[in-house]
Simulated assay, not measured.
Amino acid sequence: MSEILRVEGLSMRFTGGAGLFGRRNRATVHAVDDVDLVVRRGETLGLVGESGCGKTTLGRCILRAHKPSAGRMIYDSAAGPVDLAALSRAELRPLRTEIRTVFQDPNSSLNPRMTVRQIVAEPLVVNRLASGSELTDRVAETLRRCGLRPELMRRYPHAFSGGERQRIGIARALVTEPQLVVADEAVSALDVSVRSQILNLLEDLQDELGLTYVFISHDLSVIQHLCDRVAVMYLGRIVEEAETEDLFEQPRHPYTEALLRSVPRPDPRLRRRDDVLPAGEVPSPSEDFTGCRFQPRCPYAQPICAAEEPESIPRCHFTDELSLAGVYTDLRQTS
C-alpha cells in the first residue's frame, strides 16, 4: 500500500506570552515533539491518548492550521509530493481541497445563519470549483451520499438533529472530493445510539470514494471498530504504533496497556487490575524530561527509565521482557 503522508521529525512548540498582571511567561510547551508517522493511502489511522497528549495538535499540523516548529510532512498530492510544513499560505491554497477535516461538535462548527446549501457549497465557492446549477447539483449529490435528503438543503442547521448536523459537516468536508480527511473526535459529541450510524457512514464513504482517514479519538472502542492501524501518543510523542488487532491483543508499551484497561468489559465477572493503571495526571508538556516520559507513572519502571529515553518505537526499555495484558486477556482467562 502506497504512502499518502509521511511525517518526519515533526515538532510543534508554543511559547507563552503575558501572564497574570502582565508578567511575562516564556515557558515553552512541547505539544508535539519529534514525531515520525506514516499514513498509507486508503487506510484509517487512529491517534489515541489522554487529553493533553498532543494528538489534536498533530492533526492540526497535518491540516496546516498550525505551522510546525520543525520537521517535514511529505504529502502525495495530485500534482506530486510536497512538504506541507514548508509551504506558504498561498502555496497551501490548492491543497485545501485535497486535505479536509470533520470537526468534533456539529453544533458549533456549523454557521446557524447559513442554510445547508450554503454551508456545504462554501468550499466549492471559495476555491472556485463550481457555480450555478453545477454547484447545486454537487451539493445535492454529496448530501445524498451522506444520507441526507437534498430537498432539505434550504433549511438551517437548527432544523436538524445532532447526527444529521454531523452528516452535514461530513458533506462539507467531502464536497471537494478530498484524498485525506482528518477527523478530530468526530463522534464524541453524539449520542451513543447515533455514533454507530456515523461510523458506518464513514466506512461506507471510504469504500466508495477511496478516502484516507486520520481519526483522532480518546474512545478506544471507536478506534477498534474503525481503524486499520493505531498510533498511541503520550506527552507529545508516539510511544507505540501497530495494527489495530495486534495492539488490542498484545500491547507492547505500559501506557498502551493502561489505556486498554479503561475499555469497558462486557462480562461483569471481570475486575480491573488496578495495579496496572497509571497514577497521577499527564505531566505538563512544558517540563524538561530526561529518560522515559511515562516513567513517573509506570508500574514497571526501573532506574534506567529515569536516565535514558528509548529511541525506537515502542518507546520502552523492557518491551521484549514485559508480558502486557491486552483487552482480550481477561476474556480468555474466564472462558
Rank of each mutant, 00 (worst) to 15 (best):
M1Y: 15
E3L: 13
R6P: 06
L10T: 00
M12Q: 15
R13E: 15
T15S: 11
F21L: 14
R24S: 12
V29E: 09
V35D: 03
G42W: 10
E43P: 05
T44N: 05
G49F: 02
G49R: 04
E50H: 07
S51N: 07
S51T: 14
C53S: 15
G54V: 02
G54A: 07
R60W: 04
R60C: 05
I62W: 03
L63Y: 05
A65S: 15
H66L: 13
S77F: 03
V82P: 04
R96F: 05
S109R: 07
R117I: 01
R117E: 12
V120A: 00
A121P: 03
E122C: 10
L129Y: 07
S131K: 11
S133V: 10
S133I: 08
E134M: 06
L135D: 03
D137I: 00
V139N: 08
A140V: 06
E141V: 12
R149Q: 14
P150F: 10
E151I: 05
R154H: 14
R154Q: 12
R154M: 09
R155T: 02
Y156R: 13
A159R: 14
F160Q: 11
R165T: 09
R165H: 15
R167Y: 06
G169W: 11
I170K: 09
A171R: 01
L174W: 10
L180T: 06
A183S: 08
E185R: 14
V187T: 13
A189W: 05
S193F: 07
L199H: 08
L201G: 12
D207N: 13
G210F: 08
G210N: 10
I216N: 05
H218V: 14
C227N: 00
C227A: 11
D228C: 00
D228P: 03
V230Q: 05
A231S: 09
A231Y: 06
V232A: 02
I238F: 06
E240H: 04
E243C: 00
T244V: 03
D246Q: 14
L247W: 01
E249S: 13
L260A: 01
R261L: 11
R269E: 00
R272T: 09
D274K: 14
V276E: 04
A279L: 13
E281F: 08
S284R: 06
P285T: 10
S286M: 09
F289V: 04
G291L: 09
C292D: 01
F294L: 11
Q295T: 15
P296F: 00
A301E: 11
A301H: 09
P303F: 07
I304T: 12
C305T: 05
A307V: 09
E308Y: 04
T319K: 14
T319S: 15
L324H: 00
A325G: 09
G326E: 01
V327T: 01
T329I: 02
T329G: 01
D330S: 08
